Amino acid sequence: MLAIGALVSLSAQGAAQSAMDPANPTCPAEPDWGPAERMQLSTREGEDMNVLVAEGMVDTGFPDRLREAIEADPMIGEIWIKSRGGDARAGNEAGRIIRSYPGMVTRIPSGWACFSACNFVFMGGSIRHVDPGGIFMVHMFTHTGDRSVINESVLDGTEATTELIGAIEQSSALLASEDNDFLIRMGISRLLLTEVMYQVQAVGTDADPSTRYCLSDDEVLEYNVMNVGG
């Protein structure tokens, strides 16, 4: 029986390891972060309250639709979210809208992933919960991680490249300041930025292809991403 138990344990460990992303070993290979389309909102009715489900990409119109959905249903008490990210500033704005409703709960259900701009939507909750198996996935925030944009400017000449890089640096610095202010207002540890987000590459290299990091159960508590018990 012990031998069978050991084999089962090893098989489970092997399956878990094979399900992880080799380039981003803290993250699943195929995260469930919703459809690659603008954020869709739907409501699930419960006995004591209703749940607003947000699935898809954070688009510029999402904050307005989010506010309209919450205002339309006073029974909404939780927001469940999964998203691969999207517009960074729209994510910040959506988070601030959520925070304007006292006691609103945000949740990442088991198996769902919240990445990039979605992080800031989730952090808007007064009460935040990452279910066991839920994925809070982060990276460094920039206004372009697309090398093709820079490559095109290189073809246009040194002046065009210098102007693009200068614009990216200025815009990214401003966004970093906004992110820092947001975390303080939402009660999240600023160390989440300096120790985690800003340590992840925006663009992977041959030597280190990693561009994502998924917080462990301990880390979501350590950085106060989740501010309630399990």
Results as ranks from 00 to 15, higher is better:
Arg89Ile: 13
Lys82His: 11
Ser11Arg: 08
Val121Tyr: 04
Asn227Lys: 00
Gly95Cys: 13
Thr106Arg: 00
Val149Glu: 15
Ala94Val: 14
Gly14Gln: 12
Val203Asn: 11
Val58Lys: 01
Glu30Ser: 13
Gly14Glu: 08
Ala160Asp: 13
Gly56Leu: 04
Met75Ile: 01
Ala19Gly: 12
Cys214Asn: 01
Gly124Ser: 02
Asp218His: 07
Ala94Gln: 13
Asp156Ile: 06
Gly77Lys: 11
Ser210Ala: 10
Glu222Pro: 05
Ile127Arg: 00
Met49Leu: 08
Asp32His: 11
Met197Glu: 15
Arg44Asn: 09
Arg89Asn: 15
Val154Leu: 07
Trp80Met: 06
Ser171Trp: 07
Arg190Val: 13
Ser171Ile: 02
Leu193Asn: 12
Pro209Met: 02
Ala3Arg: 11
Leu183Met: 10
Glu93Leu: 12
Gly134Ile: 02
Ile165Phe: 06
Ser210Asp: 00
Leu175Met: 12
Val51Trp: 04
Thr162Pro: 00
Ser177Gln: 15
Asp48Lys: 08
Glu93Lys: 15
Leu215Ala: 02
Val51Leu: 02
Arg147Met: 15
Met1Lys: 09
Asp179Asn: 15
Gly187Leu: 01
Leu7Gln: 10
Cys114Phe: 07
Glu45Asp: 07
Asn180Val: 06
Ser110Ile: 02
Asn224Ser: 00
Ala19Ser: 15
Asp181Tyr: 08
Thr194Cys: 03
Thr106Ala: 00
Ile76Pro: 09
Ala117His: 03
Gly46Thr: 07
Asp179Cys: 06
Phe120Gln: 05
Glu78Trp: 06
Val138Lys: 00
Ala94Ser: 15
Ile127Met: 00
Gly56Cys: 03
Thr142Asn: 12
Gln199Phe: 06
Ala94Met: 08
Val149Pro: 08
Ile135Phe: 13
Pro209Cys: 09
Pro28Lys: 10
Ile135Met: 08
Ser171Ala: 11
Gly77Val: 01
Arg190Met: 05
Val8Met: 15
Ala202Lys: 03
Val225Ile: 08
Lys82Ile: 03
Pro109Phe: 03
Pro35His: 04
Asp87Asn: 15
